[in-house]
Design a protein around this nucleic acid. Structure first.
Length: 150
DNA sequence: GCCAACGTTGGC
DNA sequence: GCCAACGTTGGC
């Protein structure tokens, strides 16, 4: 059992959207490192922090769970999608994704600002300077500690 | 909207 | 394989 943090811009897809839809294919990831985490290291049942990025109150807004094995991201084959990738083929797809299912919305957003104030979380990937990965692993100790903040 | 900190692309 | 130019992410 591993733990993850996955970023989404709430204007595009928020924790409330996931709550309403129950389950969502995490499409549009176009970063190789993030793809590799989904393709190689995620397992059904892994825990996910749903993180709101690029918004007024960036932070962890909810909990989710990996709900499928990795499979090709359909949007890469769709010429009308902004995620279309002409360099990818169905025979040899470049981009993979997993489904994510809703677990709960946190009672409050645990903000980035707050996370920065906890010395125990100083080595978290999320807080490392310049980090832009939209999918990243979370240590079990960090997971537990952050759950305790809610 | 600005811009630092990346990652990717493509000429050579 | 180097690296300059370009594009993107995401906090502020």
């Amino acid at each position: 059992m591993k733990y993850w943090l996955m970023k989404s811009e709430p204007d595009t897809f928020s924790v409330d959207d996931l709550k309403r839809k129950k389950r969502e294919a995490w499409d549009g990831v176009r970063n190789y490192q993030a793809r590799n985490f989904m393709r190689d290291d995620m397992r059904v049942g892994d825990g996910v922090f749903f993180y709101h990025s690029n918004c007024a109150e960036p932070g962890i807004a909810g909990l989710a769970e990996v709900a499928s094995d990795a499979y090709p991201d359909p949007s890469q084959f769709d010429p009308k999608s902004k995620y279309f990738d002409a360099g990818s083929s169905r025979d040899n797809p470049r981009w993979m994704l997993v489904d994510v299912k809703f677990v709960k919305k946190l009672a409050r957003v645990i903000t980035l600002d707050e996370l920065k104030n906890h010395p125990k979380l100083a080595s978290m990937g999320l807080l490392r300077k310049g980090n832009r990965l939209s999918v990243m692993p979370v240590d079990a100790a960090e997971w537990k500690y952050i759950l305790g903040l809610e």
